[in-house]
Write a protein that binds this DNA or RNA. Structure first.
Lengths: 345, 345
DNA sequence: CTGAAAGCGCTTACAG
DNA sequence: CTGAAAGCGCTTACAG
């Protein structure tokens, strides 16, 4: 029994079929260059390949040509967090589903601390193109990729590099405006919007939606937006707001849910009940799917984002598929929920 | 602004440093062949590489040499199922964590139906080695991989190909025996073990543990094991068993949990309460973590399996790390739970 | 209509 | 001590 039996390559097929290795490549490659070759030759090659059980070496294919049917997925943190409410999972599921439908495998460049960002990002070239997950944008490395023509797509709107980064995100502006409009429709005129302190397009978009809808409804914009990391959301604060006439709270949704949880705690501590005393809405879905009444707000279509991002990347790889907008914002469906009630006139 | 600015390669460094491309390769490769080269040259090369922002092309590296710091993960079904109770996730989390610790990226070969198993499995060669998840063992393709010396590791015990497939699994024999011993210790002498009909090492191991422990305790083995897909588990069946003197039910754990759920339903329909009327244990954890009292049984250390599998694969890739057993069975910690009660004498 | 050549970016013997 | 050559398994112009 021979160990390490060599796996057949094109040269072996060529020998068996009595043609050159290059001809084998042409036949097996589906003759994309439109070379003329006799049907007899074609069949001989195909038969020999079949008989030898030939399967192309993906590494050599990739080195010689440009394509490998391999899509990268780059995350700055672990793709499979064990303790955090997992917002990656549905995105990954969507990516996987669409990639499989397109016959593409996935290569995960997961947050390893070994090498620097630059080296790790450069490694994404192993794939035909790469999806990026995470707020972080290392502009040097990503700019280099972009400049070299390597196709990338971010999940989530990105403004860096003069807005040249292709992305698929959620239309948080419209969805947030719709939530505020819903509150206004229920008679609310005095709101507070609670957002986390750090800047990010997804946060800014929500705030913009809130401000626009408030302005459209002629609501006072002064004091509307409150930046907080949650630590100053005490029972006293909420009680004061209520005494001030605030009838509805709108909370930003983030991965950690810090502000949302702080709000819930403070409401309970102040003995304010939802939605009888005050209405509550979340711009997204509260993390961890807490028990109790369903919170009003909107859905973030993460799975569909994953799918759409793969499709965008595929079209970037193959411009023949048409040149879609490099920036796509998906609609976030409203969630009626049970935490918005009408204001008594 | 030039588009598609080329990314630096070794030849560029060679030009800048005034040496040959091969010398650059030697220096950058850490001089593993023990070639003698002057410190001056080494520094010049390193400096030029740094200045140009060089990062090796993984594809070329892989083609020319053997290593790529890339571990494959092959699944026969989607790695991110959307509707099934997810048993892959913790394994993937463990794989990712250990791979990151080892500075390896992951390439996911996810169940795409486009190509046949053979072609898809051959594609795993893109990686340095590959982990396989799933009961399915296509012996032809996997045997070919094995024969060619390509390192693979299965998650879960595998007996195919004369037991030559390296794997990391759970020690279900011992864990199952322990559960039965626990029941015996609580005075149970009359059990039923419910397992699904299809053969698999993980099922057979559990059954063996159950049989062994039962025999050791001098329990009747006749009628102990019941093969069922759940459809025949009616209230009448359970009532009859109980009338027969059965005091405890042991249920196999599987991905779908069909038998477990059927058992729960039938118990409820028959008005048999757990653990007052009958004790209940699951050989593993019930899928979906159902509400109610914690079911007695054992833990399947999925995360640790992922980690251990990566370590095994790494040692297969680098025999210098020592030659560990190619077959590893991890201990499954007992879960006391609340569904085993003592039998009244 | 088909073959021979060059090249993708590396590594690893092998000459000097 | 360092360079030139061959080769990994493919694809893609380019000759005949």
């Amino acid at each position: 029994m021979s160990r390490a039996r060599r796996t057949p390559r094109q040269a072996d097929i060529a020998r068996v079929a009595g043609v050159s290795q290059a001809t084998v490549s042409v036949v097996l490659g589906g003759n994309r260059t439109g070379v003329r070759l006799s049907e007899r030759t074609r069949l001989r090659v195909l038969e020999a390949a079949e008989r030898l059980g030939y399967v192309p070496d993906p590494v050599a294919t990739r080195l010689a040509s440009a394509r490998n049917n391999l899509l990268g997925v780059y995350t700055f943190t672990p793709a499979f967090p064990i303790d955090v409410a997992d917002s990656y999972y549905p995105i990954l599921a969507g990516i996987e589903a669409e990639a499989a439908a397109l016959g593409q495998d996935l290569i995960m460049f997961t947050g390893s601390s070994a090498a620097g960002d630059h080296t790790r990002i450069r490694r994404t070239r192993l794939a035909d193109g790469c999806l990026f997950l995470g707020r972080h944008v290392p502009v040097d490395a990503v700019g280099e990729l972009l400049a070299s023509g390597f196709p990338i797509v971010y999940i989530g709107r990105r403004t860096e590099l003069d807005g040249t980064i292709p992305y698929v995100g959620g239309d948080y502006v419209s969805a947030s405006a719709e939530v505020v409009a819903r509150l206004v429709g229920a008679g609310h005129r005095h709101l507070r919007y609670l957002r986390e302190p750090d800047e990010a397009p997804s946060s800014d978009d929500r705030e913009r939606g809130v401000r626009t809808a408030a302005a459209d409804a002629g609501l006072p914009v002064d004091g509307l937006v409150v930046r907080t990391d949650g630590s100053d959301l005490t029972a006293a604060t909420l009680a004061a707001w209520r005494a001030d006439g605030v009838t509805a709270l709108v909370v930003e949704e983030t991965d950690t849910g810090a502000v949302f949880h702080a709000t819930q705690r403070a409401l309970r501590a102040a003995g304010i009940s939802v939605p009888d005393d005050v209405s509550l809405a979340v711009l997204g879905r509260p993390p961890g799917d807490p028990p109790g009444p369903e919170i009003s707000g909107f859905e973030v279509p993460r799975r569909e984002m994953g799918r759409a991002a793969v499709r965008l990347l595929a079209s970037l790889l193959d411009p023949g598929l048409g040149d879609p907008a490099a920036h796509r914002l998906l609609t976030c469906p409203p969630v009626a929920g049970e935490t918005i009630s009408a204001v008594r006139p």
